[in-house]
Design a protein around this nucleic acid. Structure first.
Length: 553
DNA sequence: TCGGCCCCTG
DNA sequence: CAGGGGCCGA
């Protein structure tokens, strides 16, 4: 049963600060179907549905009674607000990003640096700039770097003299070559680069069309790939160049290195707080950073890169002239070096607050002082390296961060659970190494999902009131309703997932809760939504076993 | 103090 | 979607 209690406004104003006052008016919607709410008519009720005692616990006990199958109720569903187009602001995803003027500025690199050290610095600066500039800029720079590495300078210069759209065309032609090269490199391996996915391979290269969304996607994917590689090289560079850069003998004959204090200007963002706010930089890095990507022996053989353009010191044991067996050992050894260094830092990392995120000089000798906050923000999972499995599946090992597939999966999970417990998250995302960073990101995702969900609910509820919907029974959520379409577009954009009926019921309940609350004028209370959250959090369903199986997507 | 959540902002 | 601030309960 659903009970309504009359609660003075003055009480509802303070319910969250004095939660015990309303403990007797606890309204439990567990097992409450939409029909219970359907009898509600705002003009008949002078009550308050606030139950705000306690917090929105995500304990599993709110699942009780929720796993029973529910009738769809679809037959009776009516189309609510379907005539209202302005409720749904354009979110069709067709927005085309206009080519940034930055696309033209490919020529700011000074690739004529006649000295290897300067070239390295220039390269690092370009990468850092690429991390902080616009996506289009980054993409162009990455592409530029790629082709300059391949001796395509002349082609780029020719392109830059063309009108903008022709520049893009030209770059896409080059992109096609890059794509071919990447496909060749990735032959026979299952990688995370969406560039190798079929749908991107179908990208046509018709020269007379403006840049299509597929092409932008393709560019973005190349960007991701290249950024990932570049950052990987950066980490490698840091680790490998520290002794070269900063080794200074101590009085006792030991060697002390400190990147944070003496890093070269081009690497200042990794440790020099005076040049760039470390938080800003780590923020940017956290968006693009993946685990240092180790190239497999196959890749190394298939990609005999010319040495000069490689800006970062390459482990000599990984050069292409090394026999494959040795390369495997080299990969293993390099991975172990990463692991050792990362573990060294992780074990000594004490999470510090933002205001204390400056690099600190390690008091120990024989250690390297890399800002632990940087490492923390890099979302570098602790790598458990199994030597035997390393060579077999190094790519899997390197792909422990959250991917777009994980995001898609999380969105689909939202159809079942709006407030997943960390246990559920761990069960459903068991293919990722759970660090605090990963956990926080997943929680944040669901927080964002809820935010969108409740915003839609409030919007449609308010519109129903404006439209003069007098009876809450007139508020239903069917698969054809605008509200469901908006939600489905957000969480199931590809529309390739059968949304459970239960979600429609929960959505309907939520919509009615908002409608009731607004009609009662409860939205004058700044915390009026919390009562609704309290109700909705009890309506989570169990996530199907499929989500807990071994494939993430 | 910490984690979780909401809210706001970009 | 991510970052950050504020709030609250454990």
């Amino acid at each position: 049963m659903l009970f309504f209690f009359s609660v003075p406004t003055s009480m509802s104003q303070s319910v969250w600060s004095n939660s015990k006052m309303l403990s007797s008016s606890n309204i439990c919607l567990v097992g409450c179907s939409a029909e219970h709410l359907s009898s509600f008519q705002p003009h008949h009720v002078s009550s308050d549905v606030s139950d705000v005692s306690g917090t929105l616990h995500k304990d599993n006990d709110y699942m009780l009674g929720e796993s029973a199958p529910h009738s769809s109720g679809e037959a009776g569903s009516t189309l609510i607000c379907s005539h209202d187009r302005e409720l749904n602001p354009a979110r069709d995803g067709t927005t085309t990003r206009h080519p940034s003027p930055a696309l033209r500025s490919c020529d700011h690199h000074d690739w004529n640096l006649n000295n290897g050290h300067q070239a390295k610095r220039a390269r690092v600066e370009n990468i850092i700039k690429g991390m902080t500039s616009s996506p289009a800029m980054r993409c162009t720079e990455v592409m530029t770097n790629q082709y300059e590495e391949k001796g395509c300078m002349q082609e780029n210069e020719r392109i830059q003299e063309l009108p903008l759209h022709q520049q893009l065309e030209g770059q896409y032609r080059q992109l096609g070559q890059l794509r071919t090269k990447l496909n060749h490199v990735d032959d026979g391996t299952e990688t995370t680069y969406s560039i190798t996915e079929d749908k991107y391979l179908t990208c046509n290269d018709s020269p007379d069309t403006s840049p299509s969304r597929d092409r932008i996607k393709l560019m973005a994917d190349v960007l991701k790939y290249e950024l990932s590689r570049a950052v990987s090289r950066s980490v490698d560079y840091i680790f490998k160049s520290i002794p070269l850069l900063q080794t200074s003998p101590n009085h006792d004959g030991s060697v002390e290195t400190d990147l944070s204090l003496q890093s070269p200007p081009s690497l200042s963002c990794f440790g020099n707080p005076e040049v760039q706010d470390p938080d800003v930089q780590t923020e940017a890095l956290s968006l693009v950073m993946q685990k240092p990507r180790l190239e497999t022996p196959d890749k190394l053989r298939a990609h005999p890169h010319p040495k000069p353009p490689v800006p970062f010191p390459v482990d000599s044991t990984l050069q292409e002239d090394v026999p494959p067996e040795k390369n495997q050992n080299a990969v293993r050894q390099q991975s172990l070096r990463y692991q050792t260094k990362l573990d060294t830092h992780w074990s000594s990392v004490k999470v510090r607050s933002k205001v204390n995120s400056r690099s600190v000089r390690s008091p120990q000798t024989h250690t390297v002082s890399v800002d632990p906050v940087l490492l923390e923000n890099l979302c570098l999972p602790r790598v458990k390296i199994e030597p035997d499995s390393l060579v077999k599946n190094s790519l899997y090992m390197l792909n422990e961060g959250l991917t777009t597939n994980h995001l898609k999966k999380a969105k689909l999970m939202f159809f079942y659970t709006r407030y997943p417990s960390s246990l559920v998250l761990k069960m459903c995302f068991h293919d990722v190494q759970f660090t605090r960073c990963i956990t926080s990101q997943l929680i944040k995702w669901f927080s964002n999902f809820r935010e969108f969900y409740y915003i839609q609910m409030e919007k449609f509820a308010r519109h129903a009131l404006v439209e003069g919907v007098a009876d809450v029974r007139g508020l239903t959520v069917g698969r054809e309703s605008e509200l469901f379409r908006a939600l489905n577009m957000h969480y199931n954009k590809a529309n390739d997932f059968q949304v459970p009926d239960r979600f429609l019921e929960v959505a309907e309940i939520t919509l009615r809760e908002f409608y009731i609350a607004i009609s009662l004028g409860k939205d004058r209370d700044p915390s009026w939504k919390k009562a609704i959250y309290k109700v909705i959090c009890k309506l989570d369903s169990d996530v199907p076993a499929d989500f807990k199986s071994h494939h993430s997507g």
